[in-house]
Design a protein around this nucleic acid. Structure first.
Length: 153
DNA sequence: GCCAACGTTGGC
DNA sequence: GCCAACGTTGGC
């Protein structure tokens, strides 16, 4: 069961529309570059990720639930999907991506409805900033969400 | 399909 | 630098 979190390890949540990139695809590929983030706050969060950090994999729009856990295996580097004619990529610093590896599926996916129904989770960014696609999760919230999902580690 | 939230763009 | 218009995201 859950030992104390590794010191220094931080926790995140990343969103993907399963139509575009799903948990099943993440599992098939193992390691996958997390690309396409075009929001400065989300970019700052990518830049803060360290190898060994863990993130919930959340399906937005379809499912609206946490379906798995991934681990950061490569820290932030320039997003190769930014084209030279990308209006957002052309100016200023490049957009970033990280590589993540599937760790395992959430035994019991944690739905947005369940998260919203839990007063202890009322402050998480998933609820408060619904449009942010990469966000930090506190150790306390991580533990609670893991418990809700019956995550074995 | 609608709408709220919110980031971006462009006129001034 | 302000702010209205517009586009996008994502929940409902």
């Amino acid at each position: 069961m859950a030992a104390a979190p590794t010191p220094g390890r931080r926790f995140w949540l990343v969103k993907s529309e399963p139509d575009a990139f799903s948990w099943d695809q993440q599992v098939e590929r193992g390691v996958e570059p997390w690309t396409g983030v075009r929001n400065h706050m989300a970019k700052a969060n990518l830049a803060a990720m360290r190898i060994g950090d863990l993130a919930f994999f959340y399906h937005s729009n379809i499912g609206k639930q946490i379906v798995g856990v991934v681990e950061v295996v490569r820290e932030a580097y320039p997003d190769p999907t930014v084209g030279p004619d990308d209006p957002k990529g052309a100016k200023g610093s490049p957009w970033l991506c990280v590589d993540v590896q599937a760790v395992g599926p959430m035994p019991k996916p944690v739905t947005l409805a369940a998260i919203k129904a839990d007063p202890a989770l009322a402050e998480i960014a998933l609820v408060r900033q619904s449009r942010l696609s990469v966000m930090p999760i506190s150790a306390e919230h991580w533990a609670r969400l893991c418990a809700m999902g019956e995550w074995p580690a």
